[in-house]
Design a binder for these strands. Sequence first.
DNA 1: GTGGTCTCCTA
DNA 2: GTAGGAGACCACA
Length: 983
Amino acid sequence: MKKGDHLFLVDGSGYIFRAYHALPPLTRKSDGLPVGAVAGFCNMLWKLLQNARDTEVGVTPTHFAVIFDHSSKTFRNDLYPEYKANRSEPPEDLVPQFGLIREATRAFDLPCVELQGFEADDLIATYARLASEAGAETTIISSDKDLMQLVTDQVSMYDPMKDREIRIPEVIEKWGVPPEKMIDLQALTGDSVDNVPGVPGIGPKTAAQLLEEYGDLDTLLERAGEIKQNKRRENLIEHAEKARVSRELVRLRIDAPVEEGVDTFELSPPDGPKLIGFLKAMEFSTLTRRVAEATGADAGEIDATHVEVEAGDEAHGPDMGSDAASGKDATGTASAASSVADGVDTPQKLADALAEAAPAQTIDRTAYVCIRDLDTLREWIADAYEAGLVAFDTETTSLDPMQAELCGFSLASRPGKAAYVPLSHKNGTGDLLGGGLIEGQIPEKEALDAIRGLMADPAVLKIGQNLKYDWLLMYRLGVEIVNCDDTMLISYVLDAGTGSHGTVGHGMDALSERWLGHVPIPYKELTGSGRNQITFDMVDIERATAYAAEDADITLRLWQVLKPRLAARGLVSVYERLERPMIPVIGRMEHRGIEVDRQILSRLSGDFAQTAAAMEDEIYELAGERFTIGSPKQLGDILFGKMGLPGGSKTKTGQWSTSAQVLEDLATAGHPLPRKIVDWRQVTKLKSTYTDALPGYINAETGRVHTSYALASTTTGRLSSSEPNLQNIPVRTAEGRKIRAAFIAPRGRKLISADYSQIELRVLAHVADIPELKKAFADGLDIHAMTASEMFDVPVEGMPPEVRRRAKAINFGIIYGISAFGLANQLGIPREEAGAYIKRYFERFPGIKDYMDNTKAQARATGYVETIFGRRAHYPEIRSSNPQLRAFNERAAINAPIQGSAADIIRRAMARMDAALENAGLGEVQMLLQVHDELVFEAPEEAVEKVIPVICDIMENAALPARALSVPLQVEARAADNWDEAH
DNA sequence: GTGGTCTCCTA
DNA sequence: GTAGGAGACCACA
């Protein structure tokens, strides 16, 4: 064991008692064996092993052991015969679980440690000392106060039931004394459960106060005579010896003669089949499925292990044989998954074997079923329960889930076995009002009623492709989908940015071709396209069945191939924490929409039209002719041809550029026309893109605007917004802000806008570890002024605005993967000068240069870079021989961890926000929009003051507990009637 | 009608 | 210099 390693020590005995009382009683289904504590224990171990990075612990263990009490008699009984004397026998239904928990530990392939004559706590103390001496960190999985004396900088505790970490500050907060004084504190207070006497009349509060005043127990007992309170003084003097004995009882031994060294606790990957065998024997179906998913094992192929149950806590069951892995199912027909699973021993090999086997499986559309009656549907639902999972897909009349009507849905619980349930297919015989519903379809309401329970049942995993769509559609129809996996999001986590120019999409057709070697029926083949396109409800049911059932079948097969790849590549927590939770969160946001004032926009549109018309007249006058102002080509001909103005830069097709920058320069040079063009463009841009387009997005039913957020479209992890894009509503100019002011709250409610201040620079300060930046943020300084002061040796006081502006541009440039060319462009200075600035910056903040070089090197070596939460962004073209393309990818790779980490942080905030607002009980407070570093909410007017701190708290602490940033996050929030004033 | 180019809106 | 989406124009089908 060495520095950088991390030892997890689970207090197995402590856990049993706590779980037994805290968790609902649970018995094994088949024979009534009580297994509640075992279930809790297994779930906890699995969670720790799987998600340690994202629980409060925030680290991944390298070493792991579970520690148990050996027997009830220990060296403490020699010190004090009454120790634990008033302990009653453990409850009857807990007794058999002692042995089972040891079996569980072995099934997890974890060391199971106990020692005659010592309590688990002593072994934990001893191992924590050994780990600390080796320079490693230790996390003790327990919330027992008796262990808090062990907490140091290197040793912390974790309460698995509350998902809470206990470090030095938490100990002080809880007990009023630091960990090293816990022994003295417990000596004074005693412990009635363990029959440690202590001093009568002294509880934790008094003890902490006395220790604060006198320093330690010995001093306190010596000077007890000075205490003013009569009773307290007498007790301390009279029971001094009891206190000293108590101290020896509570003091943990750090020198227990342990047999196994800490090095033997090194963690190896779980043996899926062995573990599954045990879990099946316990009949923990949910956990069995989770383990099967994560390890890629096929649970259906593994037999339950035979587990002997003995009474008493020294029970040792039979050895967990690894033959469990070779178990075949009753029919003897090995599925694709299980046949490739043989002889495969690592998650990566298994994932690769699954991927290799998948294209060989044939996809037979003739086997698909069309479900036309409720009884058959119910059979399929029962199948889904049996399998514990179901691929689900809807067919509708629109790409917009807020407008779409349901035509039918498809289900698949086993590869090749898929069904379509048509609900509202019509034939052409109806009149213009769309009659002609085809007979033999289950009425929509009855079908929805039938699947509602399945969809809402967390015990059955719902698998979809772009499930947010189906989630929102079904939510509108009163069906909530709980516990989802999304193959699109899994693919996104695995492969964001792979392929040249990010060409690897995560759509189903692309995934099917790539992973299954199968081209699904193209949608257009059923509906046609263009003017003759028909809606899906007009598609012939037989053809619809082949198409729709295939979608569910393919989704299920994709899931089987892709899901194991997450574990193989260490991306489970990225998916679980940053992607999966977004489906319902974003689904609800889109469903809520935001109110937009039609009148304001219509009035603005009229104003803009008038202004533009007047400008057009002036432009024609100045140009001497009428032309299409909006055509860069025609405009170029006028400016640089007819009028003979000097051209600035050229576009990549060789045309003279007419960009705002070029026109601005010409205007500065004294020409009147370019200025008019710039102004005209601004007005027409605002009119066409915003005031004219937005009203068309107001939903007829809800009267609100519902954007659509793409969860898997960016390389960095940001969301994108479309139809309409609400992430680019104007804010920089006064004219533009009039549009923003059209986004309003309904009567009696307010909009709240909360945005992270400088989140990307803060992330940069953290990841590149720049002391000056970190200090500036910690002190709440003006970061750009500080940068300017460092770079140009100018005091912050009385700094000219231009100096600060340059520093600001450089700071942003750093985030964007700076180049002298880009900075020169931005600041309008010569390239050499920009280069000199950059050089100076790197001299002042050498850590930034290191960060950039390291990031580039990592991207070159691995093909990807990572955010602080482990999200990966791929840049395969960083190895291109084309210098321009390579440089571009280098800049993007430098930017991605910064932009991506910020994106991850706000995703974490969003994942928690709904529950936090709900718990706050402040009325209907709803998260409506996300604009990269800003969240927009709607809240009752009277609740606003109380809501804002709740929002800020969640956002500012969003990185915790997974990551502790070395820089504080700061959120600014305001409420108003419209988005402009709130922002 | 579709796709490429240019421009411009946001963080 | 990063990450997006969208509208207008225009050449092509």
